[in-house]
Design a protein around this nucleic acid. Structure first.
Length: 637
RNA sequence: GGCCCCAUCGUCUAGCCCGGUCCAGGACGUCAGGUUCUCAUCCUGAAAACAGGGGUUCGAAUCCCCUUGGGGUCACCA
């Protein structure tokens, strides 16, 4: 459970200049011919390797925009920058990346920021940094400078810009083409009016479908349509709606097989909003075509959208890319995994406190937010992440990790995340040498063996317990020196007190002692907490004192004096020497147990700590002796 | 509710396309032992699933149908 908010965004991006939004426009070379038809060329063969038949046959007349002739496969991850990178999104990105790499193709990152109100540059940068942290690097997309000086992304194929908000003229041209060919029309109802009609339909248990105006004739730019277009051109507020075809639409999905949508199921959906931005459906179709995307791999929640996309492609004369819809990642309770889960947990915990007598006035004051805002949150009127995170901080409520940065802050390794995510909905179907299912692999393995054929069809639950086990194994597999360095790096960012408390020349001992106890970096920090205790004030666990110091008529306590003498003479004060001293003592006192436990309680205050030699050595002689003295002094009073 | 997708241990899954070698294999978790200075690691072992019902077949986890269950989607969000 993560206790922290997402890490600062400064690390992966050394210069802090962030994503380069201007640059990628300059390199743009989208060629458009007359009437807005986009230049395309034939897709290179061999793209269809799924377990099912190829998608609809190539349209003879269609040519395809040709960015680079020698890389047939192009996949893309296209998040909307409205928050952090979700683990589901990370899985999609991972699979898209793996497939492109496996096919010697290119993996592209495109930012779908057509929702002007909710998109932010910070969020876009955060998503890129999370991807980079996972090791999922894009060939085409916004340029992201890494801390090691490398730059991920760029516009090597000349298909940018990669922010949809910068591609609006392109969408406008395609939209006009659609209108002029009688496949789209301006509609002037306000969204309030439409919403009202929709509500009415739902109340009457009818499926709402936007009624196509009588004067609209599919495929004809007639007088009625021209009149509407003129009104739109004159500046009247409108949306553009697509004239959906009246025939059945068949999607050939590489994972699911043939998916048919009966004629009449779709209504004339909006392709351009009143603010002039394209809707998702329209932008994806235009971009996937103009950016040369050959394979669209995305979560199954998009399956129902696909017929719209196919219809749009046909109307625009575009090719249909290969589709592969991946199963969804669910919570353990089978609900959809969502960042709202954080709000749910925070709300539930705070309500518990309220039930125990906490007043909302006090809570709002403690949280530093207006009471009305808290009331709205508690009444489920919103799922504010900011409020949830404040509650988590103030009331020490662990929020579930949902986003990639949550896992990073919680001390997970990117390689463990990728391995675990790689097994959610995909499986190599291979055995290890001893005949067990192969399930531990790295990115290199994934890019070498990934295939669409082995993507599953059933939703999977995100089992944090198994992830934790994977992470523990990944930590265990790290060489000691690497663990030490990476754990230190993590501590400097997330547990700076610990990083400062242990001199760097003693860190290796700490790391060695902590490694087996660290299922996550945070666990490791917990196991090392003895090191940050204040020598003069750390508490003693009464039960441990009773059991290991006072029991047997104070045998443990008496032993401490002997230990103090021997430790004071230890030179150098290092694990090997200290281990030798403890060994000697154990021979005189009937075993290691009766020796180690009293000392452990004395220097750590509890009956639990990493192995004593390392624990002592990390503290150093003066701190260790000071603690021993303090314990002896306190116990004898 | 309409439309669409899915269905092997608690969970992730192998096996299913090309029926017999599967009284279903692995992993996580759980339980029981063992190693150990505490905690942890590590080692050994055990319990644990083909949703139900019909077909087809000599034979079905594997093919077909129905039922049930789960999920997705029905926005000027993506």
């Amino acid at each position: 459970m993560a206790r922290q908010t997402c890490p600062s965004r400064s690390r992966a991006n050394g210069s802090g200049e962030g994503v380069d939004r201007q640059d990628d426009t300059a390199a743009r070379r989208i060629s458009m011919s007359q009437a807005g038809a986009v230049c395309v060329r034939n897709r290179t063969g061999g793209a269809y390797t799924g377990r099912h038949a190829p998608v609809s046959p190539p349209r003879p007349g269609a040519v395809r925009f040709s960015p680079m002739s020698d890389s047939p496969v192009v996949t893309r991850f296209a998040p909307s920058p409205t928050g952090h990178l979700h683990v589901g999104g990370a899985r999609s990105a991972l699979f898209c990346w793996a497939y492109a790499k496996n096919r010697a193709g290119r993996f592209m990152l495109r930012i779908e920021d057509t929702d002007a109100a909710r998109s932010s540059d910070d969020s876009a940068r955060g998503i890129m940094e999370d991807l980079a942290w996972l090791g999922i690097e894009w060939d085409d997309g916004p340029a992201l400078p890494l801390s090691d000086g490398r730059i991920v992304g760029g516009d090597g194929r000349g298909v940018g810009p990669f922010f949809q908000a910068r591609r609006v003229p392109l969408y406008d041209r395609c939209a006009e083409q659609l209108v002029k060919s009688g496949r789209a029309y301006p509609a002037f109802e306000s969204s309030d009016v439409i919403d009202g009609q929709r509500r009415e339909a739902v109340a009457a248990k009818r499926t709402y479908r936007y009624p196509r105006p009588a004067e609209i004739e599919p495929g004809r730019f007639n007088d009625g349509l021209k009149a509407r277009w003129d009104r739109a051109l004159a500046g009247e507020s409108h949306v553009l709606r697509f004239v959906v075809p009246s025939h059945e639409i068949i999607v050939q999905d590489q994972v699911l097989g043939e998916v048919k949508i009966a004629a009449g199921e779709l209504d004339d959906f909006v392709i351009r909003k009143a603010d002039g931005f394209p809707t998702y459906h329209f932008a994806v179709v235009v971009d996937d075509e103009t950016m040369g995307v050959t394979h669209v791999m995305r979560a199954q929640e998009h399956l129902a959208n696909t017929p719209r996309h196919v219809a749009l492609q046909q109307a625009l004369g575009f090719r249909t890319p290969a589709y592969a819809h991946m199963p969804l990642i669910m919570n353990m309770d089978n609900s959809k995994m969502s960042k709202r889960d954080k709000a749910k947990v925070a709300r539930a915990k705070l309500q518990e406190r309220v039930a125990q007598g906490l007043t909302t006035q006090d809570a709002a004051a403690a949280l530093g937010i207006p009471q009305a805002e808290l009331a709205a949150f508690l009444a489920k009127e919103n799922d504010s992440l900011a409020v949830a995170e404040k509650i988590a901080r103030v009331y020490d409520v662990p929020l579930p990790e949902i986003e990639v940065c949550d896992f990073r802050a919680a001390g997970y390794l990117p390689e463990a995340m990728c391995n675990f995510l790689g097994l959610l909905g995909w499986n190599p179907g291979m055995k290890t040498a001893d005949g067990k299912d192969l399930e531990k692999f790295d990115l290199a393995f994934l890019r070498q063996h990934f295939s669409i054929e082995r993507i599953g069809r059933t939703n999977s639950k995100f089992d944090r317990v198994k992830l934790l086990s994977f992470n523990a194994d990944a930590i265990g597999a790290l060489p000691d020196t690497e663990f030490a360095a990476r754990w230190r790096g993590w501590c400097e960012e997330f547990e700076p007190t610990l990083a400062r408390a242990v001199p760097s020349d003693r860190w290796a001992w700490l790391a060695r002692a902590v490694k087996a106890r660290a299922r996550t970096f945070r666990d490791g920090a917990k196991a090392a907490s003895f090191a940050v205790l204040d020598d003069a004030t750390y508490p003693f666990d009464p039960a441990a004192v009773a059991k290991h110091l006072r029991a047997s008529d104070g045998a443990g306590l008496r032993l401490l004096a002997d230990a103090r003498t021997r430790l004071a003479a230890a030179e150098p004060f290092e694990p090997e020497v200290l281990h030798g001293i403890l060994e000697q003592m154990s021979q005189q006192h009937g075993g290691m147990g009766p020796v180690a436990q009293p000392i452990r309680v004395a220097i750590a205050g509890t009956a639990v700590s990493p192995p004593l030699p390392e624990t002592l050595a990390v503290l150093g002689k003066s701190r260790a002796l000071a603690r021993l003295d303090r314990c002896i002094g306190l116990a004898s009073t």
